[in-house]
Design a protein around this nucleic acid. Structure first.
Length: 294
DNA sequence: CACTTGACCTGTCCGC
DNA sequence: TGCGGACAGGTCAAGT
């Protein structure tokens, strides 16, 4: 899916368009994508106003004036695309129409009809979801209790990073940074990119990564995510922002999807292997398996 | 507990 | 062109 930079880019777009809008209707028919009952939707959503659009880890939160919140996870193929009503911004003939075509399409799972436009939740693989919850209950969800610090905030200190990593010292460093309870928002693309930047082999057991390298990794995670955010995220396949635009970060990727091509740093061929059950890209020369004690 | 694997879905690409 | 299998940005539950 969308990892932190992509979800944050969507959030920025939604905040620009949705704040202050009223929900006039909600159209859904897939209980997997939107497992809420009609009664709750009618009483807590219809007529309510959107008061904020927030994000924690890879989860979006659309706050409503009824003290309820829509939680949204895009998982692998989710999209949230906003289209203003014709005559209220870009309408027919908008340049983005060629990118994603007419909406709804066959992957549309939920439509929010708003006072000034429509919000489409598309999700080809149906892994993603939209849930309506009491705002006050959200912090008690197990996920939010366990999730790690936001990497672009100051709460993501090196000491905190190491403390959370040390609970999982035998697993691979890649599996560890993909774990949302270690750090929030890192997924497969930025795991590979930040491990390259820190020059750590993805399969290195956590307990054998030196302090120097862990410090490099801590900084690399922040840098990769920030650079991607600056470029509107990565569009490998499905990802688009709230306007339907793709992100351009993959043009700057050092290893992700570059197997068989030369490393920009040393010239050796980038390899693709399997680590933590995921396709993993790395440079065998820049990222050697090493055995240091921290 | 720590850790790994398979399942959830649909679509696409690659080799035969 | 068709068909089978592998694979895809993420998380869970269920296994060892």
């Amino acid at each position: 899916m969308p990892e932190l930079p992509e979800v944050e880019t969507v959030r920025l777009g939604l905040a620009k368009y949705l704040l202050g809008q009223r929900i006039l209707d909600v159209i859904f028919d897939n209980p997997k994508s939107f497992p809420n009952d009609d009664k709750l939707v009618k009483s807590k959503m219809l007529g309510s106003e959107i008061t904020a659009v927030e994000r924690r880890a890879k989860v979006l939160m659309i706050r409503l004036s009824t003290d309820y919140t829509l939680l949204i996870h895009l998982k692998m193929t989710g999209q949230l695309i906003y289209r203003p009503k014709v005559g209220q911004g870009f309408g027919g003939g908008h340049p983005n129409d060629s990118l994603i075509g007419d909406l709804p399409d066959r992957s549309t799972r939920v439509i929010l009809e708003l006072s000034e436009g429509k919000l489409f939740f598309n999700d080809q693989r149906k892994f993603g979801w939209v849930k309506l919850l009491r705002s006050i209950d959200i912090n008690n969800l197990e996920f939010f209790q366990k999730v790690g610090p936001e990497p672009l905030q100051s709460e993501f200190s090196f000491e905190e990073f190491r403390r959370r990593l040390n609970r999982r010292s035998r697993t691979s460093i890649k599996a560890a940074i993909l774990d949302q309870s270690v750090v929030a928002g890192v997924g497969n693309i930025y795991a590979d990119e930040s491990l390259f930047m820190a020059r750590i082999h993805p399969a290195t057991p956590v307990g054998q990564v030196s302090t120097i390298k862990l410090k490099r990794l801590h900084q690399a995670i922040r840098q990769c995510l920030q650079i991607s955010l600056d470029h509107g995220g990565s569009s490998d396949r499905n990802y688009v922002d709230a306007d339907g635009n793709k992100g351009s970060y993959l043009k700057f990727a050092q290893v992700f999807r570059r197997e068989g091509q030369p490393c920009y740093r040393c010239g050796k061929e980038i390899k693709k292997i399997r680590v933590a059950g995921r396709g993993t890209h790395f440079c065998p020369k820049c990222q050697r398996l090493s055995r240091h004690k921290s």
